[in-house]
Amino acid sequence: MLTVWTTFLLLAAVIAFAGYWLSRFGDVIAERTGLSGSWIGLILLATVTSLPELVTGISAVRLENAPDLAVGDALGSCVFNLLLLSVVDFFHRPGCLFARAAEGHALSTGYSAVMLAIVGLNLSAPAAIAGLPLSPATLAIVPIYVLALRNIFTYERRRLLEPPEPAALRYPGVTLARAVTGYVAAATAVVAAGVMLPGAALDLATAMGWTTTFVGTLFLAAATSLPELVVTLSAVRIGALDMAVANLFGSNLFNMVVLAVDDAAYPGGPLLSQVSAAHGVTVLTALLMTGAATIGLIYRPTARPARAVSWVSLALVAAYALNAALLIDGLGRQGFSGG
């Protein structure tokens, strides 16, 4: 059991370390190529930090035949990313996150809610989609994602909601060639660890007598979300609040695309018809947390109970804890076995 835990934690550490350098070199590439600041978090960093979920999901369905791990990882990562908003709120001492972040982020949360709801509908009717080559959600998610990116770009261009750019280069000693080389090396490390992580997660579930749904939603999702954590805290540290928030919301959008890719890669039929109904709990939790974040972005609260975090962040923490408690309760009722 010690070996199983050591292997899992070591792979998670590799993802976290490589994810840090992936984000740093990605930021250099964005700076050197003159990419728009508002797109660094939403597109470049969000896609990069979601690479572990993508690789891990494909590995889970193709190499390990563990669809519950793949779905639990993608949906659990959405919930974990929303929890990270409360972490950003705590470390952003100049003021409440939801009072200072751009209101335009609500457009991202709206599209996330739409895609989560579509996935939830698919999960609620597994028999109806069992004979199809793909889940209907897969056919809807990709065009909705493209539409979301287009609308967000149009909105930001119209409203001129660009994060402030530093006057001087943040990485004066790093060339574009060096950044690209470092980016590829870090991405390779993330891919390698991501391929091995599902096997380690299955060993962990077997050793502990846990379900793959439980391990995928809580442990695997937390491990593959470590790059989001590292990138988000780094962005807050340099004062790029909107970059940090856009990274988290953008990662949730991309996680829905990851589900679609996992579905296309799964050889056993529609992915969402082959997994545990317990994933519906995570979908509902993600919708609840997304709604709370949207309210915060629009209402823009300034109060911080005990000078720690806003009431929105407290709601996010409570929802995450509730999701974990419900999954643990379901784990106990299933006798620590099953999918």
Score class of each variant (00 low, 15 high):
A179H: 06
T188F: 13
R150Q: 13
A205L: 04
L147M: 11
L220S: 04
L197E: 11
N151F: 08
I152K: 10
T211R: 14
N151M: 11
I152S: 12
A177Q: 09
T211H: 06
G194M: 04
G173I: 10
P198S: 14
V146T: 12
L147Q: 10
P172I: 13
A167R: 05
L204W: 00
V142Q: 06
A148G: 10
L220T: 04
P164A: 14
A221G: 08
A189T: 12
R157G: 01
A148Y: 15
V142D: 00
N151P: 00
G194V: 07
P166N: 02
A207D: 09
T181L: 14
R150I: 15
A187C: 12
A205F: 03
A200K: 03
T211S: 15
P198H: 09
I144A: 11
Y183A: 04
E162W: 00
A201V: 02
T212P: 06
G209W: 00
V180L: 15
I144W: 00
A205H: 02
T206V: 14
R150F: 14
E165T: 12
A200F: 04
V184F: 09
I152D: 10
R157S: 12
F153C: 09
D203Q: 10
A193H: 07
A187S: 15
Y145W: 07
V195D: 03
P166E: 01
L197I: 14
L147Y: 04
G194W: 01
A187E: 01
A221P: 06
Y183L: 09
A205N: 05
M208P: 00
A200S: 13
Y183H: 08
E162C: 04
L218A: 10
I144M: 10
T217P: 08
T211V: 10
R170N: 03
L202N: 07
N151G: 07
Y155W: 11
A168Y: 06
E156R: 14
T212C: 02
A179D: 12
P172Y: 11
A201W: 02
M196A: 15
A201G: 08
E162T: 11
P198K: 11
A186D: 10
A221D: 06
F214D: 10
P166F: 02
G216H: 06
M208R: 07
A187V: 10
V215G: 08
P143G: 12
V184Q: 01
L160D: 12
A168R: 15
R159T: 11
L218E: 04
R178F: 00
G173S: 14
L169I: 08
L204I: 06
R159K: 09
A148D: 06
R150T: 15
A200H: 01
L176Q: 07
A200P: 01
P163G: 13
A207F: 00
G199P: 05
L149T: 09
G182H: 01
A207Q: 05
V215I: 13
Y145S: 05
T206H: 12
P166D: 01
I152F: 13
P198W: 05
L160G: 13
T211Q: 12
G173R: 14
A187D: 07
A200V: 02
F153M: 11
V190M: 15
R170G: 06
T154S: 10
V146R: 07
L176H: 03
P166I: 06
A177H: 07
V180A: 14
D203A: 15
L176P: 05
R158I: 09
A221V: 09
T206F: 00
V215T: 08
L169Y: 10
R170Y: 00
T181P: 01
A222D: 04
A205S: 11
R157F: 01
R158W: 08
